[in-house]
Design a binder for these strands. Structure first.
Lengths: 141, 141
DNA sequence: TCTTGAACCTACAGCAACGTCAGCTTGCAG
DNA sequence: CTGCAAGCTGACGTTGCTGTAGGTTCAAGA
């Protein structure tokens, strides 16, 4: 299977596949006579794993760790669980902060909803005004 | 006020301040005889605006637009409102997707919570198994 | 007045996680 | 056999900074 077919089957772009190979997530596949990559079922499964984990927001670093664990036998459970639940913690944290942010943004945007021309815009002022700010002053993303 | 003092007062790092100047968010300040930057109140206010907007997750591009609006008089309202509410939409979208993600991660992590050694780890398999995946297959971040 | 040493300067490299481009080669259908 | 889609490598661009190297300036203490 050439790289384009693998890309089509997994929904991962060709360039991204080559990138994953370059950073060591995907093993180097066989090559055709003309030096083109030829993939098999194993590659497709591994790439599907990677894509799914990326969709779930795991970093490449975490995925590397998970893949290393999955290569080794079954003493991997604790480590895998640690990675997954740390990530779950991150996600919950991010949700909490985004909700604070949502509230503040809504308040700011609402300050200008009155009319089309009638409003003297408060958005700029609201953004400049730290006193009215209720969120926790950490970068949200 | 030298750059370090500005950094201290606003909570923005020195390097970041120089970066904002470089990308045109902050105007070039006066210099001392020895070519060091000297800032005033205006710079501090503008930087506070920038920091707050960044904390709220606005991109540098959006901030550039907002700053341009705030420089011009008062016909800016509609545009500012559009930027802010577009961003609010993005935030709500991200929250929704993170909550789906949270559910899936929780399910995955829970599949291994039974015992310390007793579990034969399902996390790796769960990550590999697209069939059990309920979320919407878009990158969450 | 001199001398430290912290703070400042410029210019550039690097981070994640890819995307994009140029310029070339290969594979396959008609 | 020819034409062109698909593949190749290598390098650079993206966003929003952070950090480094190697030098200069400032302010305070001896």
């Amino acid at each position: 299977m050439p790289i384009g077919a693998l890309a089509g089957q997994t929904g991962v772009k060709v360039e991204t596949i080559r990138y994953y190979e370059q950073v060591g997530l995907l093993p180097e596949p066989e090559r055709s006579e003309g030096n083109q990559r030829r993939y098999g079922r194993r590659h497709r499964e591994r790439l599907a794993f990677i894509k799914h984990a990326r969709d779930l927001g795991f970093t490449v670093e975490s995925i590397r760790a998970l893949l290393k664990l999955s290569d080794k036998p079954n003493m991997a459970c604790d480590d895998a669980h640690a990675i997954a639940s740390a990530h779950l913690g991150d996600v919950r944290d991010k949700i909490a902060r985004l909700r604070l942010l949502e509230g503040e943004l809504q308040r700011i945007a609402a300050s200008c909803l009155g009319g089309v021309n009638a409003c003297d815009c408060k958005i700029i002022e609201a953004l400049a005004d730290h006193a009215r700010c209720h969120h926790d002053h950490g970068r949200v993303v």
